[in-house]
């Protein structure tokens, strides 16, 4: 009985951390970018206000849309939340860690993307098709790079289960961050930028048809559905950042259940996330958006680096 309560509490903590922190990360990125551009920028809590506003607004649905259009936001949230309970943030192992591993995470992301891309085509709008096409093309190179870079870390720990990997890494500090991890880290960082639609791959703030990718795909969404989609993509950012943080620097992560350990872990997590968010903002501010057909070259780099990191691990042993 005690076990069930602890597990339930842990689950709520895990979901709560990601769900509630997601808009905050976006706030930090926006604020940092504004500061770099010598602007004051909106408050870091602005994304919360945006979301609550959108949740209250009515949804406009295209007359051409089928049931998929209304189904997709819910599926997207659901698949993202399943991922959330698999990717450790402040504690490992998570209570339901055994329902899936990193392969599952990658393919659940693909599941959400698959339906979102279909929803883009659903309204018969040219923009939707354009966005879906670009998103799926980019994703097809991003996904292998993402899986490989995580495999490179996973094989160090001898498991593809994220909770077990993170736990084993944080208990054996000697295995943290070897050269093959550096290659994997660079690859996963590029992947993060691509997957979360950031400059130089995509610009989340543009609505120009020549350049937009993700925004084009969800152009027909509005009101509450848009809120769900935005929230899901913010959570996706947290998922990727916590992968970066906990796979490569699992410092401070709680592996035993005690208030002190959890407290340290939460502080460490927030600090790591903030740093990474600032890192993303720096990359966004110092780079120009790439032309669409230059993006594959960048992603190919991530792909090759992650492949190398895996090969190097097996040949050299680190």
């Amino acid at each position: 009985m005690n076990d069930i309560i602890t597990n339930a509490l842990l689950l709520i903590l895990q979901l709560g951390v990601t769900v509630l922190m997601a808009p905050f990360i976006f706030g930090i990125i926006k604020k940092t970018k504004a500061r770099i551009q010598n602007r004051r920028g909106p408050s870091i809590f602005q994304p919360y206000a945006d979301l609550t506003k959108l949740l209250k607004k009515e949804v406009v649905i295209s007359e051409n849309a089928s049931w998929l259009f209304s189904f997709t936001p819910y599926l997207l949230i659901a698949s993202t939340l399943v991922i959330v309970i698999l990717v450790p943030t402040v504690f490992a192992p998570l209570p339901f860690h055994w329902i899936g591993d990193i392969i599952t995470v990658a393919y659940l992301l693909a599941l959400g993307r698959f339906f979102l891309a279909l929803a883009g085509l659903d309204t018969a709008s040219g923009f939707g098709g354009l966005g879906s096409s670009r998103e799926m093309s980019i994703a097809s190179i991003v996904e292998p790079a993402m899986m490989l870079s995580i495999f490179a870390v996973a094989v160090t720990a001898g498991s593809t289960n994220l909770s077990i990997v993170v736990r084993s890494l944080s208990t054996t500090p000697a295995s943290i961050f070897n050269p093959s991890h550096l290659l994997a880290f660079v690859a996963l960082f590029i992947v993060t930028i691509a997957e979360t639609g950031r400059i130089p791959v995509d610009n989340p703030e543009t609505h120009l048809e020549l350049t937009m990718i993700h925004e084009a795909m969800i152009l027909e969404y509005s009101g509450r559905y848009l809120a769900f989609i935005e929230w899901a993509s913010q959570m996706k950012m947290v998922i990727f950042l916590s992968l970066l943080a906990n796979l490569f620097f699992p410092i401070g992560l709680a592996t035993v259940l005690s208030p002190a350990a959890l407290g340290v872990s939460i502080v460490a997590f927030v600090a790591k996330m903030t740093l990474l968010a600032i890192g993303i903002a720096l990359v966004e501010s110092t780079n120009a958006k790439l032309r669409l057909f230059r993006v594959p070259d960048l992603l190919m780099t991530a792909f090759i680096l992650s492949l190398l990191s895996l090969i190097l691990y097996f040949i050299v042993g680190a």
Partner: peptide, 13 residues
């Protein structure tokens, strides 16, 4: 947070 879902059917932009 926002009450019952309100929807409106409209043309695609």
């Amino acid at each position: 947070m926002g009450g019952k879902l309100r929807t409106r059917i409209a043309k695609t932009w």
